[in-house]
């Protein structure tokens, strides 16, 4: 049984993306939300890599890999800044629960 195909890689990526989306929407702890965000990044990278590999033919090149590298870079930067913001929030409000952080009334 041939498991390692483009199709199954895409399916894997989608499942991971969905799991990450579930985490972002559902969890109230901001740290876990950011981790679920990383899962989503991962899923996207996986799909990109799958496409660059399985669409490779003689004239193709590794631009997909380069894009994945850039995405990882951006994810790192975003994680850094996001965590810094989270730390600031924690310093100001002493909690990182999204429900308690919401200041809307009614």
């Amino acid at each position: 049984m041939n498991f390692f195909t483009l199709e199954s890689s895409i399916i894997l990526g989608l499942i991971l993306f969905a799991i990450g989306a579930y985490g972002v929407i559902s969890r109230r702890n901001l740290l876990v939300v950011m981790m679920s965000l990383e899962i989503m990044f991962n899923a996207v990278n996986l799909i990109l890599m799958a496409f660059t590999y399985f669409n490779f033919y003689e004239k193709g090149d590794q631009l997909g890999h380069y894009l994945v590298l850039l995405i990882i870079t951006v994810a790192a930067a975003e994680a850094a800044v996001g965590l810094a913001i989270l730390v600031t929030i924690f310093r100001n409000k002493k909690k990182i629960d999204t429900d308690d952080l919401s200041e809307m009334k009614g």
Binding site: L70, T73, V74, A76, E78, A80, V81, A84, I85
Partner: peptide, 15 residues
């Protein structure tokens, strides 16, 4: 990308 990293670095530092 490198500029982005530097900016993020500075931002995280400030925050």
């Amino acid at each position: 990308a490198s500029i982005l990293i530097i900016v993020a670095l500075v931002g995280a530092l400030v925050l």
